[in-house]
Amino acid sequence: MAIIEVDQLMKEFKVAKRETGFLGAMKSLVKREFYTKHAVKDVSFTVDKGEMVGYIGPNGAGKSTTIKMLTGILVPSGGTVKVNGIVPYENRQANAKNIGVVFGQRTQLWWDLPTIESFELLKEIYQVSHSRYKENMDTFTEILGLDEFINTPVRQLSLGQRMRADIAASLLHDPPILFLDEPTIGLDVVAKERMRTFIKEINKERDITVILTTHDMEDIEQLCKRMVLIDHGQKVYDGEMAVVKNRFGKIRTLVVDLEQHSKPLTLEKAEVFKEEAGKYWIRFNREDISASGVITQITQTHNIKDLTVEEPEIESIISRIYQEGFDGVEQPIPVKSGS
């Protein structure tokens, strides 16, 4: 049963042009020119109850614009949205009771007050019954360890603590749908792991539908069975995470620092695509050859000073799918250097 239905969703913005130079500066004093930006173009998908979907795309792809339309903050320029049977922008307040929202970079808690007070205020705002509030608080305290900082003002919390508090706050009123915008951004490895475990747990035990945007490959791999990829406002892929991973996640990049580089580096089943001051970036497909196979080839002719193996970033997977289409011929994925 579909709990979220998005059909041919569109959003256009008018954006002012920036003038440059002295004359441009004088001109912009009086008049400004605008162009239309298509933030979301013709996006359709449905999400079933209890699903956990990764909504993925590079910065500026239209992710948060879509989330804003799903939460009722923005009115679409075209197409339809239904969340739990409600059109969010027509009935924002009713929709608000059905959803929990966490923005990773911005807290929804009262900055200067002890954390517990935010929970108490949200209880009033969402009219949560006393017994339900107590039950939820007990559960969240147990799983998220809220008690270690419940009396500390929000501004003094660590980022990890704040995120835990934020996610608990978003679930106080038992929403059937949860929107998580970059829930692990800026967290350390331990905190990220804890967050993921919690998200998995509430998805399973409470049957909460989760829509998640993230930049973190790990997040997607661990949390989302299904992913919707968008780029330049358009949907480029919608399907199983595993398929994308199989198709594109097999490419690895080996970066080696070689001692002496007078001899050319020739390799089989791998390709040098960048070279800089004795450093070589080598691409290979994990299925054709293992990393140690490539390394063995190199050591036959060169001495390796240092090496690292890089996994493809979500951005590069997306740009590839976008460029070639999902059924395109497999080619090595360009990997950004220095990461």
């Binding site: 939460t71 903050i73 307040q93 911005r106 705002i125 969402y126």
Partner: peptide, 11 residues
């Protein structure tokens, strides 16, 4: 972006 939080609440 903090204004959005006033818009995701049912009041």
């Amino acid at each position: 972006g903090t204004f959005d939080r006033f818009l995701v609440r049912p009041i």
